[in-house]
Design a protein around this nucleic acid. Structure first.
Lengths: 175, 175
DNA sequence: GAGTTTGTTCATTTTTTCTTGAACAAAGTC
DNA sequence: GACTTTGTTCAAGAAAAAATGAACAAACTC
């Protein structure tokens, strides 16, 4: 019961990469983003990577992430890809350097929109399918279905519609 | 990387309690809520319990949950407590019955508010602490801190303030 | 075209999270 | 006060998620 109990537990100081050579600034920022990513259900490594990029004054290479964060190349690669798919990290190329360089997307609007369309929308799609199946069950049951149950199903449909309407708007009003 | 990869994986049919005697209606509704709870980072059993309560026409006892969902008494007890702490489940007493009965809170407004104040606000509190530490680091660094880094820290403060302002309002505009 | 650098993939290991079930407490019944 | 019913807690086991690292591919260098 991670999420809920976490909020009830004593505020244990989240520790980051043990014997690393990260600066206090980097440690503190990373720590903050690790907390944030856990809150929204993303793995800790994504928080570490994003946090490091966020506070880095320069674009960062995969190799730098591996060394500074003491994570494996695989983790860094996969983490960066995940962050790119939700638009939280951008790829840039430095002239005369073959390596990929990464920077954090720091526009709140983009971050929220990216998260919504990467995480929420797919679920809303499958929700659509599920509601269809529910409709079928509802009809097959006929009068066997109690009125209060019928009302609850109506509520589900309403919630879903509401979510589909609001989701694309989230982030529009942020700056 | 559960959350992200999940949205990229093929839409595998989430299965619920194997050889249970749940009705198709219950199965479908539970399935839907299991998906929803996973999306917001809560354990599957919470989705099962809430889903079952949601579609039950009558208040339900702990024992019924154990039997119908084929989960342990411990799971049911802990799950119900978690759901109650975020206000998603209400306790009711049936006259002449010593057992506790539970019902699902179905007001979207309450659900959202409960989730916010149960999950988000605690994090925002610790965020406050972290920003304080960052401020200290910022001052201790002096000119060593690059302007772009200073700007990023400003952005963090702005985000945090924004979140603290908006969080309590979320849900106010839902019906 | 042999060797290097850069990045990805994926089976395995490690870590974290969740569930279980037995022990316990609390409250009721006879 | 012995027995039952109801519910909680928590150590241990099971399951799920995430990180690792070695193998691989792709693109460049000489």
């Amino acid at each position: 019961m991670s999420a809920i109990s976490a909020s009830l537990d004593p505020p244990s100081a989240t520790c980051v990469a043990s014997g690393s050579d990260l600066t206090p600034l980097e440690l503190e920022v990373i720590d903050l983003f690790v907390g944030a990513t856990r809150l929204i259900g993303l793995p800790r490594s994504l928080g570490e990577i994003y946090g490091f990029l966020f506070i880095s004054p320069e674009p960062v290479t995969l190799d730098q992430l591996v060394q500074r964060l003491s994570i494996s190349k695989g983790s860094a690669s996969q983490g960066l890809r995940a962050l790119r798919t939700i638009g939280a990290v951008k790829l840039s190329h430095q002239p005369g350097d073959r390596r990929d360089h990464y920077t954090a997307e720091t526009e709140l609007k983009s971050l929220v929109s990216g998260f919504i369309s990467g995480q929420m929308l797919p679920h809303l799609e499958t929700g659509q399918t599920r509601l269809g199946r529910l409709r079928a069950i509802e009809e097959s049951m006929g009068p066997e279905l109690r009125p209060i149950q019928r009302a609850r199903l109506e509520k589900l449909v309403h919630w879903h519609h509401r979510a589909r309407t609001l989701a694309p708007l989230a982030g529009k009003f942020l700056d």
